[in-house]
Design a protein around this nucleic acid. Structure first.
Lengths: 338, 338
DNA sequence: GGACAATCTGTTATGGATAACAAGCATAAG
DNA sequence: CTTATGCTTGTTATCCATAACAGATTGTCC
């Protein structure tokens, strides 16, 4: 029996059908100028008739360009990850590129493996949306021959960096709470490995220090709503806590849930600020005051930065940071009187 | 100046360095059995020394297998999309495949373009996580030579279908509400284009009919929290509404928000059930009763199904549906007395 | 008319790997 | 000792498209 999924016709078949050489077919399909109209038509007809589609693998081999961008994200399902991936895909498509995605855990082994897969896959450039930390040097070795952009700050020297200014994010949020009259602001931080999380924490601390406020010990989450919940159960038991900056909206949902269960009203008793402005933030109960940073936009800009680097490998490769904005909703208010 | 990103060494370079033929290098790297240990070692040393990495593009060209799976999702950022994509990536990786992702809008043009890109990219198989509707026939034409799996029911004949049994989902949810004593259940449905949404609605209706309940007119959303909110503002104004089945958790968040704003308490005045069980569902206010369906698992199963098809193109290609489960949380309760 | 440019098309080499075949050699079997 | 067998390695053809070069044709200008 004949195989169900077989290879399609090749360029030479089209050439034969149209009575021209393969090179001419190639020229027609690549919109080269010097092809006679009659020939072009004949070729196109043959293409139609045979249902021919150009083999991009062969193209990639001979041109050395796969027109593919690799994206490395973490194997989690947080809003930021998917949102960024979406931005990458959209921008890549507009530029005529497709996207190869790989995911990884945070271990050095997993990260280097993941990058390795992308390199082997022959991508033209790589976007790394994960904190590399100790994996940084090994990864840099792997990507030595390929343009690379990072979206988490830790990447360090040598690679492109595109993202949102996390310092501004934390400062905006902390100041918002202080301006409302809170004595100080507590913080549920993100995981240690993330430099975005580290920067937010540092900036929160600095802002408090500059305002002459007491600096409470920070609590740690792992970006999950559940970790927010756990930390919320602790914070809710301390009457002196009136303002909390949570390092992500998803954790903030958990914090709010825990506070509610402990009978602390939001924002009357406790104000909560998140970071990210995920789609659901406006529809939490109460709606969440947060810092808007568009991951989709970050993804887009990462692609553009990468393409620029692909086009001109010797370009100046400066970090590119965007300013986030404060979105005030109902989860923040002045502290309770007394 | 030398180019910064140049091509790496080829197999023949390794061969030369090790004093063997390219074919032997290929054998070593493909773990062929009949290679002498000494030779193998020499080759591996040369590989190490030159930092050689096998060129998958060339491999794909000659073997006709790219070890790549294509995934088509919609260009939205809902939980289901990213969750499924994650499952696909994980399962693909375990099987030694990488993932090529494309997104699309719902138009026929966009859908066929997207599939086209995947085909051109030379993927070994395609997972379509979008409702095709009128695009179905054109898409089927494009994928004639490539194994394909769909995860939204509309796909119809000829392709693999993997997903969650949406009928069961809607029945579970509706019955849960009826069992609590509600006279009937209102429904905020998903968009028309989605057969998953259509099935949920049909099953909701049937369940009500079988129970002899009045069937209220359905309301329509587009999966967004915002659309849930809009519909919630309508439902909240009708005192007779005591139970609502919302076709997705994200819309349910919007519905709950709207009801709260209108002063209707959940679950005391109105019960709300969602579908999906997204991570945040357990941390909404109140926690959301919902139907759990693992998109990640659907993604995984889609990959396995696809790989089976790739391995044996003539296999029987039956639909594969998984049963969802009801997760009862605090957003549902018996109707208010009187 | 002849030289030269511009246009159109074809030929050959190339990219990097693998499949299929062939050959050398050592060992086993008869 | 010879033939058969298996192991190890090399040679050649192939996958499909494009780049670089070359040939043919037409047109242009002096």
């Amino acid at each position: 029996m004949e195989h169900k999924f077989k290879r399609g016709p090749a360029m030479r078949d089209v050439a034969a059908a149209a009575g021209v050489s393969a090179q001419t077919v190639s020229r027609v399909l690549s919109d080269h100028p010097n092809v006679q109209e009659a020939t072009r038509r004949r070729v196109m007809e043959a293409v139609e008739e045979l249902g021919y589609r150009r083999n991009n693998t062969a193209r990639a081999l001979v041109t050395g360009q796969s027109k593919t961008i690799g994206v490395l994200t973490l194997a989690t399902n947080y809003y930021s990850r998917s949102s960024l991936a979406l931005g990458v895909e959209l921008a890549a498509r507009e530029a005529g590129y497709t996207v190869n995605s790989v995911t990884s855990s945070l271990s050095v082994q997993a990260l280097t493996d993941a990058v390795s897969r992308l390199v082997l896959q022959g991508v033209d450039g790589i976007i790394i949306a994960a904190p590399l930390q100790e994996a940084a040097s090994k990864v840099r070795q792997l990507t030595a021959r390929i343009p690379t952009v990072n979206t988490d700050g830790s990447s360090g020297v040598g690679d492109g960096l595109v993202g949102v200014d996390q310092d501004v994010a934390a400062v905006l949020a902390t100041k918002h709470l202080l301006n409302l009259g809170h004595k100080t602001v507590w913080h549920v931080a993100g995981p240690r490995d993330w430099s975005d999380a580290a920067i937010r924490m540092e900036s929160w601390r600095r802002t408090l220090a500059e305002a002459g406020c007491e600096i409470p010990p920070e609590l740690r989450g792992d970006w999950s709503p559940e970790s927010g919940y756990r930390n919320g159960l602790i914070l809710g038991r301390m009457p002196e806590v009136t303002a909390i900056l949570v390092a992500s909206d998803e954790m903030a949902f958990g914090v709010i849930r825990a506070l509610s269960e402990l009978g602390r009203r939001i924002p009357e008793d406790v104000s909560v600020v998140g970071i990210d402005d995920i789609d659901l933030a406006a529809y939490s109960n109460p709606p969440l005051t947060t810092i808007r940073q568009s991951f989709e936009d970050t993804g887009r800009r990462a692609v553009l930065h990468l393409l620029a680097q692909i086009a001109d490998p010797d370009m100046e490769n400066l970090p590119e940071l965007v300013e986030p904005t404060l979105v005030v909703r109902a989860s923040t208010a002045p502290p309770p009187a007394g």
